[in-house]
Design a binder for these strands. Structure first.
Length: 240
DNA sequence: AATGGCCCCAACCGCCGTTTC
DNA sequence: AGAAACGGCGGTTGGGGCCAT
């Protein structure tokens, strides 16, 4: 493996799975500061994570609007249709599936859908007098001209269906029942953290919470808040 | 119970376009 | 105008969990 050269700061950054305390800290700071300037947020929060890592964790896992649970058949259908339309443009697909992230869809496609596609393709091949190909070519051009025409036809049918569905639904959001229902234990925890923040009367509460932690170690986040107790001023100074 | 293989998914990497200074 | 910082994206990796043997 080729070694990566880390800068002075990067050497001390944590990597790998996030701890619950880190999640909590991140949720607090994103609630306070908003979803931007991730590098600054990472620094002032005291998290030993890169801004990029914070953003990813928030976008893919902690955002309260995210759905956490298995894909429904309806969603799977939409993913299939949109993938036929957009290809591997996961973020575009994700934009039309509220509560789902590009990463989630990408993973889902790679594991579940592609497998199904392979099976379908296999069946298709059998029906079409099996030409020996199977698997990932489901959406790829085939060398055989006849096969290419069949593929083209399938693709157009799917594309048309997807287009129709997208146009019929409102501005790109597919009409699926059940979005926005946040009921899992995970979602409850996140929503607790968020409401904890919003019911905090001032940033001072946060300072108190943090600085009274038992280990007595200094924490960059609490240090920062002690220095900048006016929340509005805090936000403004950060973004300007 | 041990272990090897496979699956799943969170997290990382590298690149590129956009924004800010 | 140009450089640096930031944010977004798609591809890849690694580790944990599950299951069959």
């Amino acid at each position: 493996m080729v070694g990566k050269l880390y800068g002075q700061d990067e050497m001390f950054l944590r990597r790998g799975p996030w701890l619950e305390e880190e999640d909590e800290q991140l949720v607090k700071f994103v609630t306070l500061l908003g979803e931007r300037r991730w590098d600054s947020l990472a620094k002032v929060s005291g998290l030993k994570r890169s801004g990029k890592s914070c953003r990813l964790r928030w976008m893919n896992y902690l955002r309260p609007s995210l759905k956490h649970g298995p894909m429904t058949r309806e969603e799977e259908k939409i993913i299939l249709q949109l993938h036929a339309l957009f290809g591997n443009k996961w973020s575009r697909i994700a934009r039309r599936l509220p509560g789902r992230t590009d990463n989630e869809i990408k993973n889902y496609w790679r594991t579940h859908v592609r497998k199904k596609a392979q099976v379908q393709s296999h069946d298709h091949d059998k029906i079409m007098d099996s030409r020996g190909d199977s698997g990932e070519e489901y959406l790829l051009p085939k060398s055989n001209e006849t096969e290419a025409r069949i593929q083209e036809y399938d693709f157009d049918v799917m594309k048309e269906a997807a287009n129709r569905e997208i146009l019929e639904s409102d501005k790109g959001t597919c009409g699926i029942d059940g979005f926005g229902a946040l009921t899992s234990p995970f979602e409850t925890r996140i929503s607790d953290w968020v409401s904890e923040i919003s019911t905090d009367h001032s940033a001072g509460n946060l300072v108190e919470d943090r600085s009274s932690s038992s280990n007595g170690k200094s924490n960059i986040g609490s240090w920062w808040f002690q220095e900048h107790t006016d929340l509005e001023e805090f936000s403004c100074s950060l973004w300007t």
